[in-house]
């Protein structure tokens, strides 16, 4: 499904955000992607959804060497990949319904069919009464669910989700994970970047773990090492004084 060989990625002239990544995702596999903030999770996903070219190494997606593809070949591959972006990337001028409908429109599905499926899915993720709402009027968690609905509506072959449950409570998080799980059972290959240890523990899948740009694979069911207690926390001096820098509070 996806193969990374000696992938390195650097933004501009900065340090390598990803280093020597070797990775094979088998068709129908399900992986969590973990790592500290800034470890490179979003960058790795960006390479997978062909939103970025690596600085070095070979990526192959669905059996095609990406470097050898022509511009006109990309849309067909990309339409088989569903993406939940970390910052959602919804279209603010479109209703929730039109946002979710986008992948189907691109695939040329008929309007009546589009409406039926989109309305059904939006109800399923708990947004039945926000069909015509514009994203800026929705809460973070609602926007996230619109983004998730958009990523799965076209039944993608590969689903990449970047922190898809970061803004919702655990019960909705469970429901959304269940959605991914069901798609996985139908054959979709899934990669989910998350910090949510509860979900990782609940759904038993192998983990791709990034540590400052390098990747290791951790077998399913391995317990997550508890975080070490922070030692000798000292606040920045500006915050530690008894008075605000801008003066005292009004009382």
């Amino acid at each position: 499904m996806i193969r990374f060989e000696n992938i390195g990625l650097r933004y501009g002239s900065g340090p390598e955000a990803l280093r020597d990544i070797n990775l094979t995702l088998e068709p129908g596999s399900f992986h969590f992607l973990t790592g500290a903030s800034g470890a490179g999770k979003s960058s790795l996903l960006r390479l997978m959804y062909l939103g970025l070219r690596p600085s070095r190494g070979v990526i192959s997606v669905f059996g095609h060497d990406v470097a050898a593809l022509k511009r006109a070949d990309f849309p067909v591959l990309r339409r088989q990949i569903g993406v939940v972006f970390q910052n959602f990337r919804l279209l603010d001028h479109l209703s929730a319904l039109d946002n979710v409908a986008l992948p189907l429109r691109m695939a040329g599905v008929g309007e009546a069919e589009i409406r039926e499926h989109v309305v059904e899915l939006l109800h399923w993720v708990g947004l039945g009464d926000a069909l015509d709402a514009k994203p800026p009027t929705l809460s973070g968690g609602q926007q996230q669910r619109v983004a998730i609905a958009r990523s799965v509506i076209a039944r993608p072959r590969l689903l990449l989700a970047d922190e898809p449950t970061g803004n919702v409570d655990d019960s909705i998080g469970m429901r959304l994970l269940y959605l991914f799980e069901e798609l996985h059972k139908l054959g979709t290959t899934v990669v989910i970047a998350t910090h949510n240890e509860g979900l990782i523990a609940r759904f038993v899948h192998p983990r791709l773990h990034l540590e400052r740009g390098t990747l290791s694979v951790i077998a399913a069911g391995t317990p997550i090492a508890p975080l070490p207690m922070p030692t000798a926390m000292v606040l920045p001096a500006g915050l530690a004084t008894s008075q605000s820098l801008t003066g005292s509070w009004l009382t």
């Binding site: 959804y49 062909l50 939103g51 511009r71 006109a72 990309f74 849309p75 067909v76 591959l77 990309r78 339409r79 088989q80 990949i81 993406v83 990337r89 279209l91 986008l102 992948p103 691109m106 695939a107």
Partner: peptide, 16 residues
Amino acid sequence: SPVVELLHIMGATDAY
């Protein structure tokens, strides 16, 4: 351009 990029990532052709 951000929206155009997004559409491309979602599989839009240039003609679209």
